[in-house]
Design a protein around this nucleic acid. Structure first.
Lengths: 300, 300
DNA sequence: CTACCTTACGAAGGACGTAATTATT
DNA sequence: AATAATTACGTCCTTCGTAAGGTAG
C-alpha cells in the first residue's frame, strides 16, 4: 500500500474518473490504472466500480483510512522539517467563522508583541483548518465548536496537541419577538421539533448537535452552506429557522439551559507539544508562546 | 516516506541498533542503513545519532507519527479484507483488567446465543487492545478507563468506531479503617497530597488523573506495573497507597464526590460502523450485533 | 582490534510512459 | 463512433544483497 497509490486512489474516487485523476496528479491514465490495479491486487478485492467510477464497499473502507494516513504523513514531514527550520517571521493563521472575534483580539495581542508578524488570515471550515495546521500549511489557528464542558473538540485525527482553550455559554438564536424567547431556561431537547437551520460551516451540524444533546430529531428546515455568520443570523431573523450559537454572537437569543453543553474555542499551534531536551528556545516554541499568550489575553 | 522505511526506522529506535532491527525485520544491516539514509535524505535532516543509536529531535517527531501511520495502514488492510471475508466462527476477545467482570458476563451472553463462539480472551493494557482490534488481530474488546460522564475514552487514533459504552461511579480504594474512610463526599482534589499508587496497567495513570481532576499533585508513592486488580487491591489494603477504581471493584472504598468523573467501559468491535448499501447482513455486522447485544445484557 | 554502521556495486523488481486493445455508452 | 479504462512492453529508477570501507569505543 504505497502512499502514492492511496493518494491516486483518493483522487480517482473524488473525481470519479481515472483520466481526471491522472491530469490532476501529473500521471498518465495508464499509471493511474496501474496504481488502482496494484492496490486491488495487494488487497485481493476490487476497490472501484468502473463506468461509472465509484468505490465498492471495500473501496469505501479504504478511503476512510487513506485520507487520515495521507494527512498524517504530511503532518510528519511538516513536524520534522520544523525542527531544523527558522522560526517564520510571518504567520499564517486559520480561523473559523465564529472564532473570528477571539482571533481578531489574539492577532491584535500578537501584533502588539511583535508588529507585523501576522501576515495572512484564512477563514475556512473547522476540519480543513485543523488539517492545514497539522500539515504546516498555516502556523496556528483558532477554531470553535460545541462540546461538553471541559471536552476537547472532535477534530480530525492528526496528532496535533491542544495549545489552549476557552468556553462560553450557548444560546439558541431566534427572531426578535419569537414566542419562545420569553420561555427562559430553554432546553435543547424541548426544541427537537422546531424548524432548524443546518449550518455545518458555521456551527455544529444538526446531526452532531443531536448526538451532543442526546436527542433524536433536529430535522433541517434549511441548509446554509456559507461560512458567514451574519448571513446565518439574517436567516434566523427572517424566521427561517433556529440555530445554536455562542450567546455572545446572538442578537435575539435565548440562553440554553444546558449545562452539559458549551461553545468552545481552541487554539491550535503547529509543532509538537514541547521540546524534550530542555532547550525551550527551539523555533516552534517561540511561536507557541506568543500565540498562547495572545490567545489567553483575547479570551481573558 | 515509504511505510517500510518508517517501520524500519521505528524498529531501529526501539532496539537502539541497526543490526538488531535488520535481524528482526529480515533485512541485511545494509538495507536498514539504506532505509534510514533514504528517510534522512528525503527529509533533509539526520534522524538518528549513531553510536549509541538514539533518535535526534527530528527523529523523535517522526517517531510519534510513524507509529500512528503504521497502525492505520494495518487497520485499513484489516477493514478492507473484512468486507469480503467469511464471518469468523471463533471470536478472539481483548479485555482490560477492570473490565474483566463485564466482559465475562458479555462472553456468557454471547455463548448463550452462539455456543462456542468465543475462543480466546486476552488480557492486556488498554491501548494495546484498541490497536489489536483496529488491526483485526482480535475481533472485539471490552476496555475501560476514567472519563468525564458521556465522554469517550481517549484511545489511540485508529479510526475505530465506538460500539457501545456504560458508566458507573468511581471510588477511592483505601485500607479498611482508614481515617478518611468516614469523611464521605470525598473530592479528588482534597487528596492530591495523599500517598498514591500509580498503576497505569489497571487504572488511569496518575498524570492522566491529575488532568481529569484538574489538579496538580498526585505524586506516585509506588508504581504498580501488573495487570492484576487483586494485586493492586492487596497493596491498597496493606496501606501502601490509594488508587481510583470503579466503586463496584473496591472492598473498602469511599465513593468519590466527583460528578465530573466516572468509570467508563467501552465495547469495541472490529469493522467499520455500518454497511452503507442497505444489506445489513454483511459479515462484520453479525458479530457487531451479537457483541453489542451481549454487552448491553452484561452491563444492564 | 572489533563490533557496527556506511558506501560501492550489480542484479532483480517495480513504476511509468507510449501505444495498442478492449469495453461501455 | 467516441470516450474511457486496461494491457503490453520497453526504459529507467529503486531497492536489496554482497562485499569492501570507515569509524568509534
Amino acid at each position: 500500500m504505497d502512499p502514492r497509490f492511496l493518494r491516486t486512489f483518493a483522487a480517482v474516487v473524488r473525481l470519479a474518473s481515472f483520466s481526471a485523476a491522472a491530469r490532476e496528479l501529473g500521471y498518465t491514465q495508464s499509471a493511474v490504472s496501474q496504481h488502482v490495479a496494484a492496490l486491488e491486487a495487494d488487497l485481493g478485492t476490487t476497490l472501484l466500480h468502473r463506468r461509472p467510477v465509484a468505490p465498492t464497499e471495500a473501496g469505501t473502507r479504504l478511503l476512510e483510512h487513506a485520507g487520515a494516513i495521507l494527512v498524517r504523513l504530511d503532518a510528519a514531514r511538516a513536524d520534522v522539517m520544523r525542527v531544523s527550520a527558522e522560526p517564520p517571521d510571518r504567520l499564517a493563521l486559520g480561523v473559523t467563522p465564529l472564532s473570528a472575534a477571539v482571533a481578531a483580539r489574539a492577532i491584535a495581542a500578537a501584533r502588539e508583541a511583535l508588529p507585523a508578524i501576522v501576515a495572512t488570515v484564512r477563514v475556512a471550515e473547522r476540519d480543513a483548518i485543523a488539517v492545514a495546521v497539522a500539515t504546516g500549511e498555516i502556523d496556528a489557528a483558532v477554531v470553535d465548536g460545541i462540546a461538553a464542558p471541559g471536552d476537547p473538540l472532535r477534530l480530525p485525527e492528526t496528532g496535533l496537541p491542544l495549545a489552549d482553550a476557552a468556553e462560553e455559554p450557548l444560546a439558541v438564536a431566534m427572531p426578535a419577538g419569537h414566542p419562545l424567547a420569553d420561555a427562559g431556561g430553554l432546553r435543547l431537547e424541548d426544541l427537537v421539533d422546531a424548524r432548524w437551520i443546518d449550518a455545518p460551516g458555521v456551527t455544529a451540524p444538526l446531526a452532531a448537535l443531536a448526538m451532543l444533546a442526546r436527542a433524536e430529531g433536529f430535522r433541517p428546515a434549511l441548509r446554509y452552506e456559507g461560512l458567514d455568520v451574519a448571513g446565518l443570523v439574517a436567516l434566523v431573523e427572517a424566521a427561517q429557522g433556529l440555530t445554536v450559537l455562542p450567546a455572545r454572537a446572538v442578537p435575539h437569543g435565548v440562553p440554553v439551559a444546558e449545562p452539559r453543553l458549551v461553545h468552545r474555542t481552541e487554539l491550535l499551534v503547529a509543532g509538537t507539544a514541547v521540546s524534550a531536551d530542555g532547550g525551550g528556545e527551539e523555533p516552534a516554541g517561540r511561536i507557541r508562546a506568543l500565540m498562547t499568550d495572545a490567545f489567553a489575553r483575547a479570551v481573558g
